[in-house]
Each structure stands twice: as structure tokens, then as C-alpha cells.
Design a protein around this nucleic acid. Structure first.
Lengths: 203, 203
DNA sequence: TTACGAACTTACCATTTGGTAAGTCTAAGT
DNA sequence: ACTTAGACTTACCAAATGGTAAGTTCGTAA
């Protein structure tokens, strides 16, 4: 199939960009991973920036699809939000690569010339805020309050999501295994607590 | 003073590394920022890796000093933890640079050859876990539970801490100002809720 | 059979990278 | 007066970078 190579390039690029960052990976390195030359890559994507953009777009689309699934399967607003967030904890079969890449994007997008102005995270964040404000207890929350709430949860999830190698390095594999095991239930309780608390000290 | 230039190099390097990452900054760029050549930088630090290591070390030391202050000023364990975490929200006069750099370090340290094995975050994290387990309600928490709890809070704080440029880009300056204003009080409540909840569903 | 376009490759290029070598300049110590 | 050492500079260098140009190979459609 023709587009097979393209898809492989996107997979490899996602992995390497997520591990080493945009400037830490050369297009030659990505191509070599597939046994091809960098010009094969340029043939398909035109430039490194465009390749990077397509990788981000693919992730963005996957998150959108994830929300569509949840809106179909769940009806209770609080459950929808919670399900979505819990799913973000171990996002896709590809592991932490999308989480790591999005974290890098938050750190870098302002500086990288070409993709500035293209905010791949925007629809994702707006969907989350919408989910929060569908919850009865949060209906009179301001946009800022709803956003802040969900962004704190997102931070808790994503920060842990990118930390595996570092935490394994610091604490060792066995200690990390315990931490990883403890995380979901603690996250579950955290989300419940935050949702239950509502937007403001009961005024 | 002789070491004045050195300190300026560390300041500039911290800023640029935090903004563009290790691979995104050349030593020539750092030196030019001070009107010097890259060889002046190499004269003081020997290599790019060593410079980067010293920047990290300085940040690590500052966090240690911060804890010392808090241990001196506060006696209640819960207050100590909360004060520490709230201080991390806007860490130093230098703004978000240390937070951004540490986030990059979490993403990168496994891959960068030289600094692998040097875990600048280790003492910082161990101090936090110690603070948690000093709190009466958390005294029978496992290490993993205490760690997971504080790491979630750390994630909420740090993720927001690195997001200013991105969020301004997505939502605009005025919307971001509202979010920034709403954040501390929500964080305050989040920390209280997590501490109060204790390590496990009341068994 | 030929024409064509997609999927590549080898050559090549200017620029930038981190780092070495060999100075120059200046202030302090003896 | 002479030496030494620190703080720098100019001159290099080999390797790697992203990208262009010009093919080659090959399956398919006219």
C-alpha cells in the first residue's frame, strides 16, 4: 500500500519527537529507523516542520475521536468527564508518546516559528471545559474556574504520564512499580473530590 | 569581580535552556547574549553539558534552601507542605524558568548522555515525601501513596507553571489573566482537599 | 509500447554545531 | 622586572544539520 510508508514515518516520528524533542531528532535519524534515507521522508512531507505538524494533528484527531466515543457511551456529565480523564492516564496503545509530545508542545510552541498560531491543544481544552460545565454542580462556575479545575487534573495526569523514565531512574524499577500501581486509585479519588467540591467555597 | 561573568552565563543559560531546551540552544547563542564568544563560555564551563549541569544544580540548591526556610518558619507539618507547594507555584523572582527547565529535565534526562545517573530531582522529591508523612493523617500511608499524592499536586502546579505562553496563545491575554487569578485559590482548596482525604478510603 | 507519476536514491550544498589549539591582554604576586 | 594565571579572542576543524537537484526504478494507465 502506498500510504503505508507515510504512516510508518508518522509512527516513528511521533516516537522520536516525543523522546528527544523537535530539535533533538534529525530527519535522517527518523528515516534511518525505517531503513530509508532522509530524502524519502522529505518526499512525503516536504519539510521537518510539516512532518511535525502532521504528527501533532494525528494526536489531536485521536483525542477528538476519544471524546466522541465517550459522549456516545456515557450520558452522565460527571461520568463523562471522569471517564475522559481516566482514559488520558494511559492514552493509547502507543504508550506515553502522545502525552510526552503534547507536553513538549506546551513548552515549545511559542518559539518554533512555523507552527506558531496553530494551537493543536485548543479544541481539546475547550472540550474539557465544556464537559466540566455540563456537570450540575459546576454549571454556575465561571469559564476561568472550570478551566482551572480541569487543568489541575490534567496537570496531575500528564505530569505523571511523562515521568516514568525519570522516576524509575530515581527510585528504581520495583519502587516505581508500586507507585504506578497506586496511581489510578488515587487519581480516581482526586477527580471525585474535585468534582464534588464545586467551583467555590459554598457561598 | 571574577565570578560575575560566570553567574551571568548561568542566568542566561537558565533562561535560554528553559525556553528552547538543551538541543534548541547553542553555546554560541548563550555567549552572544552577553556579547561574548562561545569560547569564553567554554573557558568557564568546559562543555555545554557541564554548563547545563551547573544550571540544574543551582536550581536544585535553591529548592533545598526554600525547604530550609519553611522548616524554620513553620512547625505544623500540614502547613509546611502546603506552604512549600504554594511557593512552588511562583517559584523565584526569575519567573517560570526553573519550572520549565525541570519539566524539560523530566522529559529529557534519560536520553542525554552525560547527566544520566545524576538525578537533580531526587532530593527534592524525597523532601516532599518526608513532609507528607509528617502529617498525622498520612503517617500510615505507604511510600508509594505519599509519593503519588504529592506528585499529583506537583503535576497540577508545574503543568500550569509552564503553560502561560501556550494558554495566552490559545485564549488571549485577558482570558488568561482571569485564569491566572483564579488559580491560586483553587490550588489552595485542592491541597486542603487532598491532605484531608488521607491516604485511603477510610478502611 | 510508451508515457507518466509515485517512491525512492545518490550527490551535493551552505550553515551550524560543539570543541581544540594557540594565542593576546591585563592585573596581581614575587 | 619577570612570571604567572585568569579571562578572554581569532583561527580552525570534523561532523551533522535541513534542504535542493537530478536522477533511477517500477507499477499502471492510455
Amino acid at each position: 500500500m502506498a500510504s503505508d510508508t507515510r504512516e510508518q514515518f508518522l509512527d516513528t516520528a511521533e516516537m522520536l519527537f516525543s523522546e528527544r524533542g523537535f530539535y533533538g531528532v534529525s530527519i535522517a535519524a527518523i528515516a534511518n529507523e525505517l531503513g530509508l534515507t532522509k530524502q524519502a521522508l522529505l518526499h512525503h512531507f516536504g519539510s521537518k516542520e510539516k512532518l511535525y505538524g502532521e504528527v501533532l494533528k494525528r494526536i489531536s484527531d485521536e483525542f477528538a475521536a476519544l471524546e466522541t466515543d465517550i459522549l456516545r457511551d456515557e450520558t452522565d456529565p460527571a461520568t463523562r468527564l471522569k471517564t475522559y480523564l481516566m482514559r488520558l492516564h494511559t492514552p493509547f496503545a502507543r504508550g506515553a508518546a502522545p502525552t510526552r509530545l503534547l507536553m513538549r508542545e506546551v513548552l515549545d510552541n511559542k518559539r518554533r516559528a512555523d507552527s506558531a498560531g496553530t494551537w493543536y491543544l485548543k479544541p481539546f481544552l475547550e472540550r474539557l471545559v465544556r464537559l466540566v460545565r455540563d456537570i450540575p454542580a459546576w454549571q454556575n462556575a465561571s469559564r476561568a474556574e472550570a478551566f482551572t479545575m480541569v487543568y489541575q487534573l490534567l496537570g496531575a495526569i500528564n505530569y505523571f504520564g511523562i515521568s516514568e523514565p525519570t522516576l524509575q531512574g530515581i527510585f528504581g524499577a520495583t519502587s516505581y512499580a508500586k507507585i504506578e500501581q497506586a496511581f489510578p486509585s488515587q487519581l480516581d479519588r482526586l477527580i471525585d473530590a474535585v468534582i464534588a467540591a464545586g467551583p467555590r467555597s459554598t457561598a
